[in-house]
Design a binder for these strands. Structure first.
Length: 645
RNA sequence: GCUGCUAUAGCUCAGUCGGUAGAGCACGUCAUUGGUAAUGACGAGGUCAUCGGUCCGAAUCCGAUUAGCAGCUCCA
């Protein structure tokens, strides 16, 4: 006799039975239930219950249910591949956020035609509605089974499992796969799916391993959901900064200039300038000192900082790096060693700390050729860089200040709601290779940072091996319209570099002490931020950061002079305003296509000219009626000053 | 860097079997037009990304390079 506790009711059973049967007995089960959590563990509906437990039934709307569903879809894909291409070797095929993939070792890449053939075979498998059965084997038999089926990657996976691991397999029809599960009851549930693409992916994610063929797909319990998903994807493409940023003339690229070196066109440059001025002013208010340091330095500097050892591949080097008899320069990939020279300029007192240094800093990083992407990942970029040089006891307070500033900035531009926090830590396994400093120093820095984060109530994920070579980071991750994440802002604690550079201050007791350093950005990379703003607002930036805030449309040639007078009056008050006096706009047919991205347009005709007014049309509020130029200027300036979204 | 796809006018694209280049939009001129999406006529624009190869002949086939896209790896 044992009790199964569902959310709705509790049932008692005498003999072991499956989750499905238990739920059926409780009259709770429906077709939508894909899997369950038993005492918090994700299991299949076929999972056997034999003791007291708490059961939560999961549908596709639950993360776990979705995962099981997608994972089964991956198995259906693998079965189809083995049917059509028996020579392909299976590797792994997990569910991922927004779908699934399966990696195959195949001599030929899967073309679009192959993918649609695979989809056809998958449909058959779904229609066959094969039961999915789990079985477990001892290690030797498991290896024998996979060897018999000529699956070397599976053999390797089994051999790598810990000694006490349960080795489980799933069978559906003729297809058997090493898999921890859980899975759906049968293949028939995978009603709607689509194989989205095939790309290369390294075995175990290691560049030195063989490249496999990865097939990506999405799967849903109904065709409608699939359709909705594909439409949402289409909508995301419409917001893609790399497309509309070019269309709206924010930036472009030129083949002869090179990869990762975008041209900011007047609109892009203007918005970046607006953001920059705002950040520099905001930082000044918060006690930052502005610096301007060189974009390059001799290799000697990078030797001190450690960049020469840890970051040389990422730098653009001018001259022969190997020839010690000649001068060798490198463009800067980071600002730290330059900005430290400001502190080092003279002997410093504890009274000067915290010293908050800020710089709108252009950096150069020689990224691998396949990494570049629009304005998101480039080789030359400008960040709102800063370094805070502190007494150790100031660390928490200053860290809080950095976090507050970053949150304020991201909130103001409207990006905070799509941000998450990542506590990026080192990987001790790569001590000395990727990371400078001792284990003690790292543990100390990470402990301090963890405490600060906890004290500040920051909820974060931990990212192992995501730290900088000199210290742990709090990375603020932004999720873009495609669901992809990138770091937008970073706050880092550095207990190493000050010592390397011989940075010291005279403490109140007269002793020389080594300061702590916080590396941080406030808005992060301007290019990347611009890209995300374009996506966030689908190109229609809020008035205060819009490169063109107002466009004046004279209706009829005789009103052009007045239009320019209005332009002059508004421009004199700092409004970014243009007159569109082209032929087409003078006539009956005024183009509004280009105006949908503009905050305001002012239409001027006979009545307005005579009365000295403008007819205001707002992107947000629609027709706002006729008002005096002065009233309009006052209104828009108030909006700009408040940075209203 | 790796795997795959792609490159024709400013943009979106067509161009069949290898036979010397096309449309719409945008742009220019003129005419027309008066309150919110695309008036008419005419015009200008391209060594078909670059370099090389095959061929009597290459936008088309092959190779390399460059750039763009997706993913991997790496990263702000």
């Amino acid at each position: 006799m044992f009790q199964v506790k569902f959310a709705e009711k509790t049932m008692s059973f005498d003999a072991p039975l499956s989750v499905f049967d238990a739920a059926k007995a409780a009259e709770l089960v429906s077709r939508a239930h894909l899997a369950a959590e038993v005492d918090g563990v994700l299991v299949a509906m076929t999972h056997q219950l034999s003791a007291d437990c708490e059961v939560k039934l999961l549908t596709y709307a639950d993360e776990g249910g979705k995962r099981v569903f997608n994972h089964t879809a991956a198995h259906v894909l693998a079965q189809a591949v083995k049917r059509l291409y028996p020579a392909c070797k299976l590797t792994i095929g997990p569910a991922i956020e927004g779908g699934f993939y399966y990696d195959f070792d195949s001599d030929t890449p899967f073309s679009a035609e192959v993918l649609s053939a695979l989809e056809g075979e998958m449909k058959k498998i779904v229609k066959e509605n094969l039961l999915i059965e789990r079985f477990e084997l001892p290690r030797a038999e498991a290896v024998a089974l996979m060897e018999e089926r000529a699956e070397p990657y599976k053999v390797q996976l089994i051999n790598e499992l810990p000694a006490d691991a349960v080795i489980s397999f799933y069978r559906q029809g003729e297809f058997v796969d090493l898999c921890a599960g859980p899975h759906l009851f049968a293949t028939g549930a995978v009603k709607a799916f689509k194989l989205t693409q095939c790309t290369g992916a390294y075995w175990k994610g290691d560049q030195s391993n063989k490249m496999l063929q990865r097939v990506y797909g999405v799967a849903f319990p109904s065709k409608d959901e699939l359709k909705a998903h594909l439409e949402a994807l289409e909508e995301a493409r419409r917001r893609d900064h790399n497309k509309i940023g070019r269309e709206l003339e924010y930036f472009t690229t030129v083949e002869s200039i090179g990869q990762g070196l975008p041209i900011l066109l007047p609109k892009g440059a203007r918005t970046v300038q607006i953001l920059q001025r705002w950040i520099e002013d905001e930082e000044q208010k918060r006690g930052y000192l502005l610096t301007k340091t060189p974009l390059m330095a001799k290799r000697d500097l990078y030797r001190i900082s450690g960049h020469w050892d840890h970051y040389r591949d990422g730098m653009f080097i001018l001259g022969d790096a190997e020839d010690e008899t000649k001068e060798c320069f490198a463009l800067r990939p980071m600002t730290c060693p330059f900005q430290y020279q400001v502190f080092l300029n003279k002997k410093r007192s504890y009274r000067e700390l915290p010293m908050r240094l800020g710089e709108t800093s252009t950096l150069f990083r020689n990224e691998d050729s396949g990494e570049m992407h629009g304005l998101i990942r480039v080789r030359q970029f400008t960040i709102s860089e800063g370094h805070l040089i502190l007494r150790p006891e100031q660390l928490e307070e200053e860290f809080r200040g950095c976090l507050e500033l970053a949150k304020y900035v991201l909130d103001t531009v409207g990006m905070l709601e799509n941000c998450s926090f990542r506590f990026s830590q080192w990987d001790p396994a790569r001590a000395g290779i990727k990371y400078e400093g001792t284990a003690e120093q790292w543990e100390h820095a990470q402990t301090v940072m963890g405490t600060i984060l906890d004290n500040l109530g920051v909820t974060y994920e931990i990212g192992i091996d995501e730290a900088a070579f000199y210290g742990p980071k709090l990375d603020i991750q932004y999720k873009n319209v495609f669901g992809k994440e990138d770091t937008i802002v970073t706050i880092q604690i550095d207990m190493l570099l000050a010592e390397k550079f011989g940075m010291e201050y005279v403490d109140s007791d007269g002793q020389m002490k080594t300061p702590y350093i916080i590396h941080r950005t406030s808005l992060g990379c301007y290019e990347r931020t611009l890209a995300y703003l374009i996506e966030r607002y689908a190109g229609a930036l809020p008035t205060w950061m819009s490169p063109e805030q107002v466009r004046i449309l004279p209706i009829g040639e005789e009103h052009i002079d007045y239009a320019y007078a209005v332009r002059k009056a508004l421009a004199a008050r700092g409004v970014r305003v243009e007159v569109d006096d082209r032929n087409e706009t003078i006539g009956k047919k005024i183009r509004t296509a280009q105006l949908e991205k503009l905050p305001y347009m002012l239409v001027i005709g006979e009545n307005e000219m005579t009365a000295g007014t403008v007819a205001v049309r707002s992107r947000k509020a629609g027709d706002m009626g006729v008002m005096s130029v002065d009233d309009f200027a006052t209104a828009i300036l108030a909006e700009i000053a408040e940075k209203r979204r």
